[in-house]
């Protein structure tokens, strides 16, 4: 990721009142759910962290697709990692594309990723926490 990171000039945000500073991160957010083969979850989280998605929860799960016969023979690996993250709405497409190309999700059986909109959060601190806002924006 060699992107210029000049979007949040510290000196500029420090001059604004708190309400305006809050408005900077009061954007619509979405839950990103990524389902990949077991063991790949850490790499997904690492890639998400590199794209500044800092709130990632990882869990284990089991896939239930595929043919029943192959499943019976024990030929499929159905163990999966589920990664739940929070992304801003306007970056959802970009982050999905990063995952798509980095992990070849366009090929069958490589995993899927999708976003679900959030309609509410339990307060400004929770919102700040899950959307990964740095402290200096809140502090004057």
């Amino acid at each position: 990721m060699n992107k210029p990171t000049s979007e949040t000039p510290v000196s500029d945000s420090a001059a604004k009142p708190l309400q305006e500073r809050c408005a900077d991160f009061m954007k619509r957010i979405e839950v990103l759910i990524t389902i990949v083969d077991r063991g790949k979850g850490d790499k997904i989280v690492q890639a998400l962290r590199e794209s500044k998605v800092t709130y990632n929860l990882s869990s284990v799960g089991y896939g239930a697709s595929g043919l029943a016969l192959v499943d019976m023979l024990g030929l499929t690996s159905t163990e999966k990692d589920i990664i739940i993250s929070v992304v801003p709405e306007e970056r959802a497409h970009e982050i999905l594309n990063i995952l798509l190309y980095k992990f070849d999700l366009d090929k069958p059986d490589k995993g899927i990723a999708f976003t679900v909109p959030i309609s509410g959060v339990s307060g400004p601190i929770a919102l700040k926490y899950i959307s990964g806002v740095q402290n200096h924006i809140l502090k004057p």
């Binding site: 798509l100 999700l105 999708f114």
Partner: peptide, 12 residues
């Protein structure tokens, strides 16, 4: 049921 706004990796 939840609405899905974006999805990648669905090939089937």
């Amino acid at each position: 049921v939840l609405p899905v706004s974006n999805a990648v990796g669905i090939t089937h």
